[in-house]
Design a protein around this nucleic acid. Structure first.
Lengths: 337, 337
DNA sequence: GTCTGGCACTCAGTGTTCCCGAGTGCCAAG
DNA sequence: CTTGGCACTCGGGAACACTGAGTGCCAGAC
């Protein structure tokens, strides 16, 4: 039914279409790839492939174009992830190694990925969920205002200003700081609420309102940040590509954190590459675009995801190689810091 | 030479062209605005305006279009900044007031401005230059690694991981922290280098290498951040507008921090609106776009700038009104926090 | 049964021509 | 200085024909 040659034809169509951006006809196919058969034979194969929904023609008397289903088969069975050249690997490594803090890591990563793939790169900040508390700091700003800073083991810093209902002095702040740190140090962020719940009870009565105020801000900040931060770069790379769907929709989607979140999707397996092709992705308005994403993390825990977004007509092997490589290097960097 | 009617004609041309996006002819002008004269008279005026370089025709037998010089005259002498409606003001105020930290303020501001003007908004983070040190924190991460956190009075937090050549214990860190805070508290960031230069000398000999390492990172972080951070939003608004220059160039410029910096420009006067029209702006590749920018700051100090970027053919009075209003509200928010 | 060459057919894209109308510049009269 | 009249220009759309890449189908060869 779907014999080897037909698969070869599909592969050839995908490759040619990706590189030329024009519907590919039977004659051009036999010329560019040495398939050893005549155009007429190819035409028969194409007719079958079309009937099965792997390819389509924009109009009669035009060449064939892969459908989403065709790309899917290509990605799943006909292509191999293309590793980067050693020069590229080297470049990635040195570029990422220069990062000074977590913001810098994310910024560099997203730019790197955009440049490498010549597409739009999307990187999610390392989630707080799997992080642990490294340190809690309370800084008096004025008599009635404190800045509360939470530092995690992934190098992320959360800060909030706390408005107080009473005045505080340095001694009380120091006491509270010590209490907080001793109960929270090394504790996973998800278990922070449990840990602090009985904290006011362990304090002198006059300190309890103060502690309660601070804790409520602390808890609130943990909930707030559940909408993980996401950044993108390389929007300029969209300008060249012509989408079937409007460019505007794509740009709008990129500025919606929530949409980006869902696009990157989720996988339990850290090293797995997720590919969403055209209509497979959950967001209408992004038909005609594909997403290649991977998780990254330090050690065995997945911290977050990153990926690229581009036209369905993209070079999947190369893109997948780049995404996988960058994900790995970011994981390394984060594990080391 | 340039009498009142000619100016009225120029104003009418700008207004009509902005709203219709089509070259405006003499007949259409007298119909839409009641100028009290005939088309032929207008034609004469137009000929003069064209000769003086305020308007141009795309081709013979087409209507007139304002030139950059024409827009400039319009902005300088023919238009008044249009204040926002009170509903809009109210919306801005409540939206910005909900911000929880400095990142949030900037993020909300840029989105707000993009939505308000339906153009690309650009916001620079409050500069560190005019800030003062509120607190310095040293957090031991491991035996040989410290996290160094600098908190400014504008609510910004700089963080760096410091790799040490020796092991440290909490007591030494506490000592150093106290020293740093006592010498730097309240001190302007620009004068930090002067303040810390003699600090090692005031320490016990065995603490000097440690202090030197930390100080070098501190100083480095101050220099690094001289490239102020800039964010933008509303790129989707570019999709509709058709630029004379490629969309790609605009998007590329937006992703270049340095270019954005220069676009926002500088003014000593905090409340002044800067308008750069088309070819006036320093960056080739952004012909056909205009920038409306304003400074913002808390109190009398200018902290940074914000603005919008759009096609030269934009509604200047409205855009200027929105930029000015947002700048003022952000200033208020920052002054209060 | 599979492949191949041949052939008629389709149709997007391109180039040509033609025409229309908005808009202009100029001029002579008010 | 303003106005109506008039001839002129030229971009843009409609109509049209042509070309060529590509297809489907069929009969014959292997």
């Amino acid at each position: 039914m779907v014999d080897d040659r037909k698969l070869a034809v599909l592969r050839a169509i995908v490759e040619d279409y990706v590189s030329t951006n024009e519907p590919v006809g039977s004659k051009a196919l036999v010329e560019r790839h040495n398939l050893g058969v005549s155009p007429a034979t190819i035409r028969n194969d194409m007719a079958v492939l079309e009937e099965q929904g792997y390819i389509a023609q924009p109009h009669t008397s035009a060449g064939r174009v892969p459908t989403d289903k065709g790309y899917r088969l290509f990605v799943d069975r006909l292509s191999q992830v293309k590793p980067l050249s050693s020069a590229e690997r080297k470049a990635i490594e040195t570029f990422l190694a220069g990062a000074v803090d977590i913001d810098d890591v994310v910024m560099r990563t997203v730019r790197l990925l955009a440049q490498l793939t010549r597409q739009v790169a999307v990187v999610q900040y390392p989630t707080l969920t799997n992080s642990t508390v490294r340190h809690v700091e309370l800084v008096p700003l004025s008599e009635r205002r404190l800045m509360f800073v939470l530092i995690t083991n992934t190098g992320r810093v959360e800060q909030r200003v706390v408005e107080l209902h009473e005045t505080v002095d340095e001694a009380r702040v120091a006491h509270l700081r010590a209490m907080l740190n001793s109960s929270l140090d090394g504790c996973g962020l998800t278990s922070v609420p449990d840990k602090v719940v009985d904290l006011p009870a362990r304090l002198a009565a006059e300190d309890r309102p103060l502690a309660a105020t601070i804790l409520s801000v602390l808890l609130e900040s943990l909930v707030d940040r559940h909408d993980e931060k996401i950044v993108f770069a390389g929007a300029a790379n969209l300008a060249g590509a012509d989408f079937t769907v409007g460019l505007r929709d794509v740009l709008e989607a990129l500025e919606e954190q929530v949409v980006l979140m869902r696009l990157l999707g989720e996988t339990s397996d850290l090293s797995a590459l997720t590919v969403r092709i055209g209509s497979e992705n959950p967001y209408t308005g992004l038909q005609g675009t594909s997403i290649v994403a991977a998780g990254y993390g330090s050690g065995d825990k997945q911290l977050a995801r990153l990926g690229v977004l581009g036209p369905t007509r993209m070079d999947y092997p190369v893109t997948m190689g780049a995404v996988r490589a960058v994900a790995r290097y970011v994981s390394q960097i984060l594990a080391a810091s």
